[in-house]
Write a protein that binds this DNA or RNA. Structure first.
Length: 136
DNA sequence: TCCTTGACTCAGA
DNA sequence: CTCTGAGCCAAGG
């Protein structure tokens, strides 16, 4: 199930998976964070796109290949967005195995475990804009 | 065909 | 901080 369809669904999902693969063990990112980055790469930095993009990321995660560390993507509140059940426990267990700590409210401290994001090189390599100017 | 259900986030009280 | 509402599309019974 997925809400709406991103501008370039295949490209979008491919970028999402590629980006998520960059998240190191013990770190987590959020749907909004991933969405923001991907949308920026796609040239869509609109307001609603961010919120909707998050759902698109969720949709992409729902169909991600096995080599994607989907567990490292959680919601903006630092909580597992999956419904309580095997999937939820699975994600939590995977994150716990990586050293991610959960609060008594099952929340992850994003201040501590949030992924800083991809390298500038990665972004520049994906961004269609030439970005001629360069600064130290 | 109609109704319910989804891997979300921001803003207001 | 916690709870609630809006945004808007597609699949299944």
């Amino acid at each position: 199930m997925r809400f709406t369809s991103p501008p370039n669904r295949h490209h979008f999902e491919a970028l999402v998976w590629e980006l998520v693969r960059l998240i190191p063990p013990g770190k987590v990112s959020t749907y909004g964070q991933v969405a923001k980055i991907i949308l920026a790469v796609l040239g869509r930095t609109g307001g609603n796109d961010r919120a909707w993009g998050a759902r698109w990321v969720g949709g992409a995660m729902a169909a991600c290949p096995p080599d994607v560390p989907w567990q490292r993507v959680i919601n903006s509140q630092g909580m597992i967005s999956l419904k309580k059940g095997p999937g939820y426990d699975r994600q939590k267990d995977l994150l716990l195995a990586e050293g991610v700590v959960f609060d008594v409210r099952d929340r992850v401290d994003l201040k501590r475990f949030a992924w800083e994001g991809p390298s500038q090189e990665w972004l520049q390599a994906r961004t269609p804009t030439p970005g001629a100017s360069s600064s130290g």
